[in-house]
Nucleic acid binder design. Sequence first.
DNA 1: AATGAATGAGCTTTCATTCAT
DNA 2: AATGAATGAAAGCTCATTCAT
Lengths: 193, 193, 193, 193
Amino acid sequence: MTRAERNEDVKRRLFDAARHIVGELGYAEASVARITEMAGVAQGTFYNHFANRQALLDSLLPTIGQEMAHFIQERSETVRPESEREVARFRAFFDYLGENAGFLRILNEAEFAAPEAYRQHMDNMAAPFQRILGRARDRGEVQDYADPELEVIVHILMGARSYLSQHYGSGPLDEPIFSAYARLLRGGLFAGS
Amino acid sequence: MTRAERNEDVKRRLFDAARHIVGELGYAEASVARITEMAGVAQGTFYNHFANRQALLDSLLPTIGQEMAHFIQERSETVRPESEREVARFRAFFDYLGENAGFLRILNEAEFAAPEAYRQHMDNMAAPFQRILGRARDRGEVQDYADPELEVIVHILMGARSYLSQHYGSGPLDEPIFSAYARLLRGGLFAGS
Amino acid sequence: MTRAERNEDVKRRLFDAARHIVGELGYAEASVARITEMAGVAQGTFYNHFANRQALLDSLLPTIGQEMAHFIQERSETVRPESEREVARFRAFFDYLGENAGFLRILNEAEFAAPEAYRQHMDNMAAPFQRILGRARDRGEVQDYADPELEVIVHILMGARSYLSQHYGSGPLDEPIFSAYARLLRGGLFAGS
Amino acid sequence: MTRAERNEDVKRRLFDAARHIVGELGYAEASVARITEMAGVAQGTFYNHFANRQALLDSLLPTIGQEMAHFIQERSETVRPESEREVARFRAFFDYLGENAGFLRILNEAEFAAPEAYRQHMDNMAAPFQRILGRARDRGEVQDYADPELEVIVHILMGARSYLSQHYGSGPLDEPIFSAYARLLRGGLFAGS
DNA sequence: AATGAATGAGCTTTCATTCAT
DNA sequence: AATGAATGAAAGCTCATTCAT
């Protein structure tokens, strides 16, 4: 390994240790001592790679969030029409959770333990989501909600993912979750007039 | 004041101090030192009224959650039909937040800082909600979702409240929030087949 | 009960609670809170009967020590000659321990937890012991040790009781303890010249 | 000083401070705050060298006990016969106390403040002592006590040391202590049959 | 770049004692 | 005489960060 590679390797090990600890035990348990111990380096070494503890914790969610976004994108990009595609995205979200058990904790605790990262992640998720729905609306696949309303819809759908994953866990989920979600988006909840 | 009243008063002051600090700064900042200082009593006094720090923090959410439930109930009980009533509840939730700025933080952080209280609160909210929707379905006001699907819907609607309040804050909210919410529940998101 | 009797009763209950707690758990665990709780009175009541916590703890050993002295006296007063009588006293000491499990702890910890009481108790035990041995010497039953030497012997014999009870516990003891003790006192340890 | 030496030096200073404080004032007064202050380091430094307060306190007696055992061994190893040698050991014990004033307190309080260390120390002292007496018996220098009786004798002799040092202090002692001890071991206490 | 000991502020909790009721 | 809440000092321990090596 070159010097630069060694350097990169240590940084990666610190990041992975933090990811593992936060995912398993939460941000509070991710002390510098614990992270460096798991990474197999001395405590002081930490500060050669990250400005401080918060800096590493703040880097967790955006990085992993990106990973998740790619995963969902891959699983849903070919699906049509948009209503099916949204359900595919919804399913892909839970599939990702199933394979990345710790992510939910990294995400949910971030609101308080890594607020800046959290805000960034939410923006990273919401903006493209809203663009997708906007374009679908322009194609006629989504009803004619105004742009500010679509923004609201986006947050409803993200809130739905969050609460459902929290309540139902991250294992393989029952069908009613998907059928109810799909049905709500297609025809609403209340009996029409 | 009688002796019992004084006693009650101190306990109330401790509770209110904690409520204020957690609402403003989060559970982590609610040290016994800070709580007792704000309540104007000595640190040792704390333990005459609560078994330990966690006991007080755990009592925050159930108590305040009850308060919120009453508020929402009052604001929505006379509204008909159910679709309007759900929007009334939705509005009342945000009205409550507007008047109780700290509640959101007490609620959201509780998942990690007071997990037992959180689970209890979520159950307290979800169970009656599902009963209401179930009865409305039986009256024909809600489409014929199966019971497990209604449970899913309930968590979607609670997630919606959470993410929207998080994103839009707790001040007076714009109309699109309510119109988008109402419209989604009435007719879904996607253009009909 | 008259007022004085009630008063005496509370004081007795406090004493008994302390005796029980110290015997079972040691002086350190005998907090005023725990003593008053076991006695069934309020904390403040304690200070109507004892100047402070230490005053009660200091009264434990002398009182119980007296009790033990009576017990031993009764069991040994008729035994003759002195060599047998000393063994009878020695046996009675362990018999008392067997029936008063907590005493050993009250005694041994007292050296540090209630030093004044300890010194007093040791004097209470040593002085009559030395008188007994002195008179036996004058009768010719004990060899002609000088008085300062008898004082030394007394502390050796008390130390023996202490270490043996510590090492062998306070249950029913094996015969070698008594035979070795008796033999040492009768003929020493080393093979005579 | 090299880094390792500095490290060792700090640990030594903490140990010596604890030894001094416990010897002078007892275990209860040996708070981490007091120890570190005397050692001239910050409180947090303590935990770089010992797992916790108890760990240091538990290391006191075994270490110093070892030291004392060496001292006594050196002072007595050449003395013969065994009866004289035992008196030499007895004297050496008090000589050690005279030079290490705090040891007595470290030892006696340990029964309650560092029970594990105490038990270990007692075993460390008793076992070789009993071996010595057993061999002397086999050589004919000690009367034919059975092995369980010799164990009893050992605890009597240790109890004697403890109570005598407690009663007579640790300064230079009067001759009667030694003469009485020697005489008891040689010919017992009571006048022969 | 890596090390790991030192720092000191901060935490929760305990407890003997006081005193107004 | 009895009550029991209030007090506040003191305890053990944690941890992010610094810095000399």
